[in-house]
């Protein structure tokens, strides 16, 4: 097993304990629910799209450290991005947590999201990290049913 510290990096622990942009979003025009059947994690992601741009994004719910930190860092990373930029970032984040580092690209360009580079060494935790992103995609595309990572 890879070192535990590779999974629970300081930045991840910080965001897990003190999630940013946590709570409802007044004026949200998109919303999606994410659910991890395996562990019971639930999160609701609120999105306010301003034209093609993510005007604001917030979340609430209860989950493990990895999913909470992932949701928190997602909100920071996506604010101000266009829908197309967000989609690209999702693909690169997904590549990162599944260990496809070539597709994930330059870590510098991932910014704080690079803190999730250790997740790929813990296969059962990949779903935790990716749940908020799947939920974001569902909100963006207006999916009606709750998103599940199963």
């Amino acid at each position: 097993m890879a070192e535990l510290e590779g999974l629970y990096q300081e930045l991840i622990l910080d965001h897990a304990k003190r999630p940013r942009n946590f709570g409802p979003l007044p004026g949200a025009n998109r919303r999606a629910e994410g659910f991890n059947r395996l562990c019971g994690d639930r999160l609701i992601l609120y999105l306010r799209m301003e034209g093609d741009v993510v005007g604001d994004v917030r979340f609430e719910g209860a989950g493990c450290a990895i999913s909470t930190a992932s949701a928190s860092l997602l909100t920071e990373a996506l604010k101000g991005k266009t829908a197309a930029e967000a989609e690209v970032l999702f693909q690169r984040f997904h590549a990162l947590v599944t260990g496809d580092f070539a597709a994930a690209g330059d870590p510098d360009e991932l910014g704080k999201l690079a803190a999730f580079s250790g997740v790929s060494e813990f296969p059962v935790r990949v779903k935790c990290a990716s749940l908020p992103w799947h939920t974001f995609a569902a909100a963006l595309h207006g999916a009606a049913a709750p998103v599940s990572t199963e």
């Binding site: 209860a62 990895i66 909470t68 935790r125």
Partner: peptide, 11 residues
């Protein structure tokens, strides 16, 4: 969260 407990114990 129990998942985090499980991961740390597994390590």
């Amino acid at each position: 969260h129990p998942h985090d407990v499980g991961t740390v114990l597994d390590s």
